[in-house]
């Protein structure tokens, strides 16, 4: 749709621009030491890739990427960052060679693989040969609402989506079992508030974090 609106040339320029931004951001992430900046840049990376998904007409994927990648993951990584040091340790020069080789080799293989990929929206591509076209044809008769992504996710492939919800639920429970449900800090802060309402919140926080370190050791 966006391709028809803007013309092939304009779309190519937009795609190249967005991919160039992604490249620059990923190089910046790889070269940085400050974890806060890395978390923020990974949020930027998600937002730019969401924009790129819109350019590819994958609006639902773009929406999910923006909500999960830019919103949720950034918040979770910020929370994780607070538990550790603020900067990454610089590694030895010799230790960088092997990862670089792996990245270059993977990149070459991926570029080699793109030669065989069908063009975007190619009707003869394997992705368009299966049930996808049937879903597009019959889903309005079956469901009575226009968004085919929802009818595939919720109805035709409802069992898969249930598995996904179970996976998300399991992830939440697993993290809680590893890290605790976080209720101890609540109990501690309430106790502190009750004990001394005259003290400032910031000194409370310092005391609480000291107590936490003592507990952990």
């Amino acid at each position: 749709m966006s391709g028809a609106l803007l013309g092939e040339g304009a779309m190519a320029v937009i795609n190249i621009l967005l991919l160039a931004i992604l490249f620059v951001v990923s190089v910046a992430i790889a070269r940085m030491r400050s974890l806060f900046a890395i978390v923020m840049l990974s949020g930027v990376y998600s937002l730019v890739s969401a924009t790129w998904f819109v350019a590819l007409d994958a609006v639902d994927v773009a929406f999910t990427e923006a909500a999960v990648g830019a919103g949720m993951t950034t918040a979770i990584l910020l929370g994780a960052m607070l538990l550790t040091a603020r900067t990454a340790k610089p590694e030895k020069k010799s230790a960088r060679v092997a990862p670089l080789l792996v990245v270059v080799a993977t990149g070459i293989m991926l570029i080699y693989a793109t030669v065989d990929l069908p063009a975007l929206g190619d009707a003869a591509s394997p992705a368009n040969q299966g049930v996808g076209l049937d879903y597009l044809r019959v889903h309005y008769f079956d469901m009575g609402f226009p968004n085919v992504v929802t009818s595939v996710l919720a109805s035709y492939r409802g069992f898969d989506t249930m598995g996904e919800v179970a996976v998300v639920f399991t992830a939440g429970i697993a993290v809680s079992l590893l890290l605790g449900f976080g209720e101890r800090s609540l109990a501690e802060s309430i106790r502190k508030d009750d004990k001394s309402t005259l003290r400032t919140p910031s000194s409370n926080a310092n005391d609480a974090s000291k107590g936490k370190e003592g507990d952990a050791s």
Binding site: A75, I76, G79, A80, L82, L83, A171, G172, V175, S176, L178, L179, G180, F181, G182, E183, R184, S185, L186, E188, S189, P201, S202, N204, A205, A208, S209, K212
Partner: peptide, 11 residues
């Protein structure tokens, strides 16, 4: 998940 991470740092 957020509470599990954030609950470990009081403020």
């Amino acid at each position: 998940i957020f509470y599990a991470f954030a609950g470990r740092v009081a403020e």
